[in-house]
Simulated scan of single mutants.
Amino acid sequence: MKPKKDLAQSMAPRKTEAPSMKEAMPAVDMQDPLKHLTIQIPASLRNELKIWAVQRGMTVREVVEQAIRDAIK
Rank of each mutant, 00 (worst) to 15 (best):
M1D: 12
K2V: 14
K2C: 08
K2I: 07
P3Q: 04
P3I: 07
K4Q: 10
K4I: 07
K4P: 01
K4A: 10
K5L: 14
K5W: 15
K5A: 03
D6I: 13
D6G: 11
L7T: 08
L7Q: 08
L7P: 04
Q9V: 02
Q9C: 05
Q9E: 13
S10W: 01
S10V: 10
S10P: 08
M11K: 15
A12Y: 06
A12N: 12
P13W: 01
R14E: 03
R14W: 08
T16K: 13
E17T: 07
A18I: 04
P19K: 12
P19V: 06
S20L: 14
S20P: 03
M21Y: 13
M21F: 09
M21I: 13
M21S: 15
K22H: 11
K22M: 02
K22R: 14
E23D: 10
E23S: 12
E23H: 02
A24T: 11
A24M: 09
M25N: 03
M25P: 00
M25H: 13
M25W: 06
P26K: 15
P26Q: 12
A27E: 15
V28W: 04
V28M: 05
V28N: 06
M30R: 06
M30K: 13
M30N: 09
M30W: 01
M30C: 02
Q31V: 00
Q31S: 14
D32V: 06
D32W: 08
P33A: 07
H36Y: 05
H36P: 08
L37F: 12
T38Q: 13
T38M: 10
T38W: 03
I39D: 01
Q40W: 05
I41G: 04
I41T: 06
P42E: 14
P42Y: 05
P42F: 00
P42S: 05
A43E: 13
S44V: 08
L45E: 11
R46F: 13
N47V: 02
E48I: 01
E48C: 05
K50I: 08
I51C: 02
W52N: 11
A53N: 09
A53E: 09
Q55Y: 04
Q55S: 11
R56F: 02
R56E: 07
G57T: 08
G57W: 03
M58L: 13
M58C: 00
M58D: 00
T59E: 03
V60S: 03
V60A: 10
V60C: 07
R61A: 02
R61D: 13
E62W: 03
V63N: 00
V63K: 03
V64F: 02
A67I: 05
A67M: 04
I68R: 03
I68E: 05
R69C: 06
D70F: 07
D70R: 10
A71E: 00
A71G: 03
A71K: 08
I72L: 06
I72H: 09
K73P: 03
K73I: 03
K73E: 12
K73T: 11
